Amino acid sequence: MRCKFPLISASLCGALALTLTACSSSPTGRQQMLLYSEQDMSQLGAQSFEQLKEKEKISTNKATQHYVQCVTDALTATLSGPQTPGQWEVVVFDSKQINAFALPGGKIGVYTGLLNVANNQDQLATVIGHEIAHVLAQHSNERLSRSQLANVGMQISSIAISGTQYHDAAMAGLGLGVQYGVLMPYGRAQESESDIMGLRLMAQAGFNPQESITLWKNMAKASGGQQPPELLSTHPSHDTRIDDLKAEIAKLPNTSTPHPQCKLMPN
């Protein structure tokens, strides 16, 4: 498979493809460079998640936790392979941030501020499905691989590196933490890809994909013309995102999956 990456020379890309077999394709067919194994990424995801749980305030509201877990369970019930139901750890953080994330290894964080914008289970499924899609498409691996190559890859094509030596140096260079680890912003191509994959996932789980449009309109209102919510900091524009989602909704097949019944009950 031929690699096409603007930050990597043809010779470097060729050397990496031969020595690291790093060229791959995303679930939508977009070409990727992936240097790390699923085990490596799960390790990074778990470490970053533990650091976040120590740093952030975890919500003690059982009703909110149950609600978010219910939506997540409905989404992950459609998955197979390494990311199967029951393997996803879900934590609700008590914060006004309008944000959520998913990390390699099946770690999901949702901030309570998001529930002020995602007004029902379908809108919440839009966001969580989007974040799960980042994991399924190995976007963290792709992003870290690009970053690593930009930092240390200039001479790699002319250096004989054993797999173990390169692996140790690469893992050390990542920083293995929240600041330099798997929580760096995604690129717009990755965000758009996760929009499409997340939409398909929520529809397959029985959620109403039309609510994704309402959700992102709510997000636009939440920005109020000022700094956008953190969740949207590197995303496509609201209009572009909504137009793309409308086009994708029109392509979705009809599903007989029962509509989930996740409700936020008074605590």
Rank of each mutant, 00 (worst) to 15 (best):
M1E: 11
F5V: 03
L7M: 11
L7T: 14
A10N: 12
L16V: 13
L16Q: 10
A17I: 12
C23H: 10
S24H: 13
S26Y: 03
S37N: 03
Q43V: 05
Q43F: 10
F49C: 04
N61S: 07
A63D: 09
T64K: 07
Q65P: 00
H66W: 01
V68H: 06
T72E: 06
L75R: 07
L75T: 11
A77P: 00
P82Y: 11
Q87C: 06
V90M: 05
V91R: 12
V91D: 09
D94R: 12
S95Q: 06
Q97M: 15
F101P: 05
P104A: 08
K107S: 04
Q121P: 00
A125H: 05
T126S: 13
T126D: 07
V127I: 15
V127E: 10
I128V: 15
E131C: 08
I132K: 00
V135K: 01
L136M: 14
A137Q: 07
A137I: 02
Q138D: 15
H139E: 09
L144P: 04
S145P: 14
S147R: 14
S158C: 01
A160P: 02
I161G: 09
I161W: 15
Q165S: 14
Q165I: 12
H167W: 13
H167F: 08
D168I: 09
M171E: 11
Q179H: 09
G181L: 10
M184F: 02
A189E: 10
M197Q: 13
M202E: 07
A205P: 13
F207T: 11
P209G: 09
T214F: 01
W216H: 06
K217T: 10
N218M: 08
K221W: 00
A222K: 03
Q226H: 14
P229W: 07
E230N: 07
L232Q: 08
S233L: 05
D239N: 14
R241E: 04
I242G: 01
D244Q: 14
I249D: 07
N254P: 05
Q261N: 15
K263W: 02
L264I: 08
P266E: 12
